[in-house]
Design a protein around this nucleic acid. Structure first.
Length: 92
DNA sequence: CAAACTATTCAGC
DNA sequence: GCTGAATAGTTTG
């Protein structure tokens, strides 16, 4: 666990539910622009994959990068989040 | 401490 | 659109 990793986690946690951000974006928020691969490496071995919405982080091309539980799982999570968000937005 | 690896990104063709 | 090279940090020996 390093400071950079903490910043990355904070940035990822700052991503609104149902939204996605690119690795570059996270790297920028972490204060290390250009360290996009480093961000991926950290998330890949991230100690708390369940408390870190790492599935909200995707490639800059909108493509699904990777996921410790499988890319399909990541897609499923994104879809589920979107559904939940829609439900919340629907209010009443 | 140094080498290798990585869930990426940019430039060139 | 695809291939090749570069960047930055983590992890392992």
């Amino acid at each position: 666990m390093t400071e950079f990793a903490i910043k990355v986690y904070r940035a990822v946690l700052s991503i609104p539910l149902g939204s996605t951000r690119s690795y570059k974006w996270v790297a920028l928020k972490a204060g290390r622009p250009g360290a996009t691969r480093a961000v991926g490496s950290i998330l890949n071995k991230n100690p708390y994959p369940l408390i870190i919405p790492c599935h909200r982080v995707i490639k800059n091309n909108k493509e699904i990068g990777g996921f410790a539980f499988g890319t399909k799982t990541k897609k499923a999570l994104l879809d589920s989040e979107r559904e939940v968000l829609k439900c919340l937005k629907n209010k009443k």
